[in-house]
């Protein structure tokens, strides 16, 4: 297991955002974290990413308990995170974004621009991402392209675990498909992927394990063999609640 949590919890003042959640991420597998708005998905992955520190339970990297002090710390351990809205800097070019925070340098802090351009272009092509011009500002890319570039970046920088916070939620069907394909590609390259979504139809096809969260607690962690798509959907929507909603909305 690359990443594992045991009964982790996190509170913000009097708000218990997360309680007793256990999960695991293995190399070459996709762990999906599902849950409604406010279920604590982002809080959980921010603990994995070093943005927040857990205040109960344990976080294990390669089996050893750790406390990640910063995103940089997590990155240095091979845990990369792609956030939904703050993945990229819109006014900066694709290659500048690609290497942001891990710029290749020659002596004296000189940014190896030629190499950055070339590697960005090559890496994107290797992931099958067709970007016309690595000099174009990231703001001019579509949402799916942006996510894909961010994923390619994490893969390039030797991430062993890749955390994606709702990479598909703002995307149309086709764009979401593109992103799911890169998730599968990253998995095939041997990365452990944590994929957050509230759409079971996005989660089920790529996921190997499914962690369901509700109001800050875990409803359960399931292997793909133990759960069908329908069960996942029902669990995710709170089962009986959905039936009741259907009942309510039915025409008289």
């Amino acid at each position: 297991m690359i990443l594992q949590t045991r009964d982790v919890g996190k509170s913000f003042g009097s708000v218990l955002a997360l309680r007793g959640v256990s999960m695991s991420v293995a190399a070459g597998q996709v762990t999906c974290v599902l849950g409604d708005n406010g279920a604590g998905k982002s809080t959980l992955i921010k603990i994995l990413a070093g943005v927040h520190q857990h205040d109960s339970g344990e976080l294990l990297v390669d089996g050893a308990p750790v406390r990640l002090s910063s995103p940089r710390d997590a990155l240095d351990r091979g845990i990369a995170t792609v956030y939904q809205d703050l993945a990229m800097i819109p006014l900066m070019s694709v290659w500048r974004n690609f290497f942001l925070g891990s710029e290749p340098v020659k002596s004296m802090g000189r940014f190896d621009v030629a190499r950055a351009r070339r590697v960005a272009r090559e890496e994107l092509r290797a992931m099958g991402i067709d970007i016309r011009d690595v000099d174009q500002p990231v703001g001019t890319l579509s949402g799916g392209e942006r996510q894909s570039v961010a994923i390619a970046r994490a893969v390039h920088f030797g991430a062993r675990a890749l955390i994606l916070d709702e990479p598909t939620s703002a995307l149309g069907v086709k764009q979401a498909g593109v992103v799911l394909r890169y998730i599968a590609k990253a998995r095939d390259r041997g990365l452990g992927v944590v994929f957050i979504t509230h759409n079971p139809h996005h989660a089920y096809p790529v996921g190997d394990r499914f962690l369901l969260l509700n109001r800050g607690t875990s409803i359960g962690e399931y292997g793909k063999a133990d759960i069908t798509r329908e069960e996942l959907t029902t669990l995710m929507a709170g089962g009986s609640e959905l039936e009741q909603l259907e009942h309510e909305l039915r025409r008289e």
Partner: peptide, 12 residues
């Protein structure tokens, strides 16, 4: 200057 949070998240 472009997006401080995003920059910090990738280790700047």
């Amino acid at each position: 200057g472009g997006n401080e949070q995003a920059a910090r998240a990738v280790g700047v």
